[in-house]
Simulated assay, not measured.
Amino acid sequence: MTSSSAGDWTERTLVHDGVRLSCRDWGGSGPDTLLLHGLAGHSGEWDALAPLLRDAGHRVVALDQRGHGASERHPEDVSRAAYVADVVALVAELGLVRPLLIGQSLGGHTALLTAAAHPALPRALVLVEAGPGGAEPGVAEQIGDWLRAWPLPFPSREAAVTYLGNGKRDVGEGWADGLEARDGGLWPRFDPDVMQRSLEENGRRAFWEEWAAVSCPGLAVLGQDGIIDGGEYAEMVRLRPGLHGLSLPGTGHDVHLERPGVLGGVILDFVRRADL
């Protein structure tokens, strides 16, 4: 593993199964916490939440998942199992002890599958706008087409914030932070084809069996106008009656970008109540 300082956090890089993985290590002492961003995202999306958790007594790490950010852009394997294996490898490499797994969207799905396949690994699970889902044929292609339709390169940060935020500046700022300057403009740090392949399994089936296998305490945080509907949440509770959950008013899918302070308070309250 290699490391370099970046001010408030340290960038750490490791190679797992031939794939370069990068993470932001925010340091801190106390319970370990691992943050997982969503599809086409980056570890910097947690820059507002991570120091709140660290200053509240957590050791905090945010991973750039394979295919994203500073990690390998074109990994051959983008299966759900590969994403899970990366989490397990990072936990072992950094010596994290039963971390709290927090994931948004596809990162939450990765956290869910990790908790199901490795029940002794996490202390608890926090799903932000994420769940077992359902088979959605064509969804990978639809999202791939959306990513390929971005008007690239963005000529300025302001143009990127306006387009990617779609009326929500905090969301636009979070997405714009994931861009890189090159070739006369701002470009994403991912390949749309890789993103599309990363979603293929989610389009083919649901993951309710895996959800039912999760044994650690869980918290589900939903956006008022997010992607997890009432039926999916009700089934999550039916299968896991001990699930804690709430919806944050005035938010959408990017709860962690819209209300990082509120989300941090909700997570810390869950940790206290569950005596984790």
Rank of each mutant, 00 (worst) to 15 (best):
Y233H: 15
A213V: 06
P192Y: 02
R238P: 09
L239Y: 14
G185N: 12
G178V: 06
N202Y: 05
C216P: 04
D177A: 15
R169P: 01
P188G: 05
A212C: 06
Q196D: 03
P241G: 08
S247F: 06
G167S: 11
F190Q: 00
M195D: 00
R182E: 05
D183E: 12
P188V: 07
R205F: 05
E173P: 14
V171M: 03
A213W: 04
A220V: 11
R189S: 03
G178D: 06
R169N: 00
R204T: 12
V171S: 07
S198N: 06
I228T: 09
A212R: 13
P188K: 03
A234G: 05
Y233G: 04
D225I: 08
L186I: 10
L164I: 09
R238M: 09
L179G: 13
A206R: 13
G242P: 14
P192Q: 07
Q196F: 00
F207P: 07
A159E: 11
V194A: 09
D183I: 05
E235I: 06
G178P: 09
L248G: 02
G184W: 13
T162V: 14
E201P: 09
G218H: 00
E235R: 15
V214Q: 11
E210W: 06
A213L: 07
V161C: 03
E235F: 11
L222W: 08
L179P: 01
R169C: 01
N166K: 08
R189H: 03
L246W: 02
W175H: 14
G203A: 03
D191Y: 13
A212L: 14
F207A: 13
G167C: 11
M195K: 08
V214D: 03
M195H: 01
E210V: 10
L219T: 08
D193W: 10
Q224D: 01
Q224M: 09
K168P: 01
V194F: 04
S247N: 02
P241I: 07
L164G: 01
R240D: 07
E201F: 07
R238D: 10
L243Y: 13
D183A: 15
Q196L: 13
E201A: 13
C216E: 05
G230L: 00
P192N: 09
S247L: 06
R238L: 12
N202A: 11
A234M: 09
P217F: 05
G184A: 08
R240E: 00
A176N: 10
P188L: 04
D229V: 01
R204H: 07
Q196K: 13
W175A: 07
H244W: 15
V237C: 15
A213R: 03
A212D: 02
E173A: 07
G245H: 05
F207I: 06
V194P: 00
A160C: 08
G174M: 11
I227D: 02
G172H: 12
F190T: 07
W211E: 00
V221F: 13
G203L: 10
Q224C: 00
D177I: 12
R189C: 08
N202E: 01
R182K: 15
D193V: 13
A159Q: 02
G223C: 05
L219I: 15
V214H: 12
G242S: 04
G185T: 12
G231Q: 12
S198E: 07
